[in-house]
Design a binder for these strands. Structure first.
Lengths: 331, 331
DNA sequence: ACGCGATGGTTATACGTATAAGCAGTTGAT
DNA sequence: ATCAACTGCTTATACGTATAACCATCGCGT
């Protein structure tokens, strides 16, 4: 019942050739001279036995593994992230790499890097937050040829994919000002995972508005009705608000309706993410849509450059999404 | 610059011992007799060199890998799934296993199984849909000791974690009938990824209602306003509706408000998932909350049993969540 | 008849680890 | 004093693969 998995040697015996020949046939490098007849025999023997190569042994022999590790923590899971992830997987597997999501939740810094290094991946993609200088050194010395960070701001130590949240804020603020708003507010969520992105969106809004002489008030907000209701004075004192994202925009609009503040009459509201639900609101929500369809190929391209070059150039950045405004009724 | 990663032999040389001793020290099995002094010397040499063991080599030697593979496709990513995933990761790593999410999007059936088998995982967790008899055989013959499926219905070939969607439907329907409803409707989404779960929730509602002599009308619905609006006659002809989930409930309530149907006066509405947004609706949405906090330990426990037993018993099932009603204003 | 370049393989080896088996040196019981 | 049992290591080997290096056979031009 529990026979050991067949090896290339078993295949060789069945096909009546040497183990080396099996290896040559199955890893079909250009320039190997094995007759078509033998190739066929080997192939048939292989799937007769249900032969599956042993990735560990291959890694041991060749020194590299074809594995690309990606940290699976703190991803803001949503349609956007999942779509990008699938694209990345597709793009990498097309080129012969294997994308694997690896949870290093409990581990920070060097211990996490060690755990990753055990698998001898060829490349690592991780949140910018957890890539310290030492962690990257551990990875490098374990043979990892490319490390890229993904985050809100560029990592100091490795090339980074930077999600341009400031641009989102700027786009929203610009739109509100175009609509005639002269006193803006911008929501910054107080939730741990969201706060930092909120800061960046605020910063973008601030800069865009300042350039046109419009003040922006910052509104720190937990995702709760009473929190939003407590700031009612603020909402009444401005004429446009960028709500961080659609969820917060919906929270805000529920509170505003209860308080009798008219949207967009008294206050114009812009969200972000273009959730399906955003179009169901009354008034329908104006929002910023993020398009990440280009991200996977950009990331993979950068990874391949790094794997070629080995010791990278200075850390640089890629901007993998484009933001566009979806104007509806709330602004 | 690009020196090879240090091996246990390098550590041995630095510590002045043999490679075997290093191995004995670092894989600290009970019953090995190495002096404390030597242990300390080895450990110090190891982290001086930044030694990281080579997972592939270890797998090759021992025959097993400590890797637990989980398919990352068709997960309904949301707070629920992500929470369960993190729990699973934590639970497994506590016991010395490594959870890895593996994307086999493009691969179905046997080819996918082969790709998984290359990594010689000790266990595999996958969507019930993609585990054919042959695929499981491939995994088994590659030394995988435990395979479990996750899905809406039990897999025929392996033990399964079955998410009890029928129970959700029954709970919602029962509640509506308790509230006095006598003609129910249940939404089944037409989206590919959701349809099957919708069917199961419908079936549960149907059964529960039938037992109490209440008819249930099925409403196939795409997630679009015009789709929901087209069924206005249906909504007017019933007095309670289970909307599949909170998203659909919100869609429905937007349409109902536009049409002047009073909720809960004319029609009671129940959703599912307890999204934060559900409490922001007016009227506030009654919903079914799913608690998966027990799921990770249940799954891991079952996995360990299977790994002990080797050739499993008959495929059985685990029910990893509990559903409770959160009653608000919409019902 | 001879060498010579293809052609189609085979033999041998190394990758890094875990562990069985062996072997000095010490201790303790008789 | 002798042997057995322990302590603390070392030596040797196997896991499955890829690939360099070697070798036999053949066709062919001179």
């Amino acid at each position: 019942m529990n026979a050991k998995p067949p090896t290339s040697l078993d295949v060789a015996r069945l096909a009546g050739v040497s183990q080396a020949t099996v290896s040559y046939v199955l890893t079909d490098r250009p320039g190997t001279r094995i007759s078509d007849e033998t190739r066929a025999r080997v192939r048939e023997a292989a799937d007769r036995l249900g032969y599956v190569p042993h990735a560990g042994a291959r890694t041991l022999r060749t020194g590299r593994s074809g594995l690309v590790l990606m940290s699976m923590e703190d991803l803001p899971y949503g349609p956007l992230a999942v779509g990008a992830l699938e694209g990345l997987d597709r793009e990498l597997s097309r080129r012969g790499y294997t994308l694997v999501q690896y949870g290093a939740r409990r581990l920070r810094g060097v211990p996490a890097a060690r755990a990753w290094a055990e698998l001898r991946p060829v490349a690592v993609v991780a949140g910018a937050g957890k890539l310290s200088r030492q962690a990257v050194d551990v990875l490098r010395s374990a043979g990892v040829r490319a490390v890229v960070a993904i985050g809100n701001r560029p990592s100091a130590v490795v090339p980074s994919v930077v999600l341009d949240h400031a641009g989102v804020g700027a786009l929203a603020a610009g739109h509100l000002i175009d609509r005639g708003c002269r006193r803006l507010a911008a929501v910054v969520p107080t939730e741990t995972g969201l706060r930092e992105m909120g800061e960046h969106r605020l910063a973008g809004a601030l800069q865009a508005a300042q350039a046109r002489g419009v003040p922006v008030t910052r509104a720190d907000l937990p995702f709760r009705e009473d929190g939003a209701a407590a700031l009612l004075d603020l909402w009444r004192s401005v004429d446009g608000v960028f709500a961080y994202n659609d969820d917060y925009a919906m929270l805000l609009m529920a509170v505003l309706r209860d308080a009798g503040v008219a949207v967009p009459g008294d206050l114009r509201v812009v969200g972000c993410d273009d959730l399906p639900l955003a179009a169901l609101l009354r008034p329908r929500l104006t929002t910023v849509r993020l398009d990440v369809s280009m991200a996977p190929s950009l990331i993979v391209q950068r990874l391949e450059e790094l794997m070629e070059a080995g010791d990278s150039a200075a850390p640089d950045r890629i901007d993998p999404w484009t933001a566009t405004l979806v104007v509806r009724e709330s602004s």
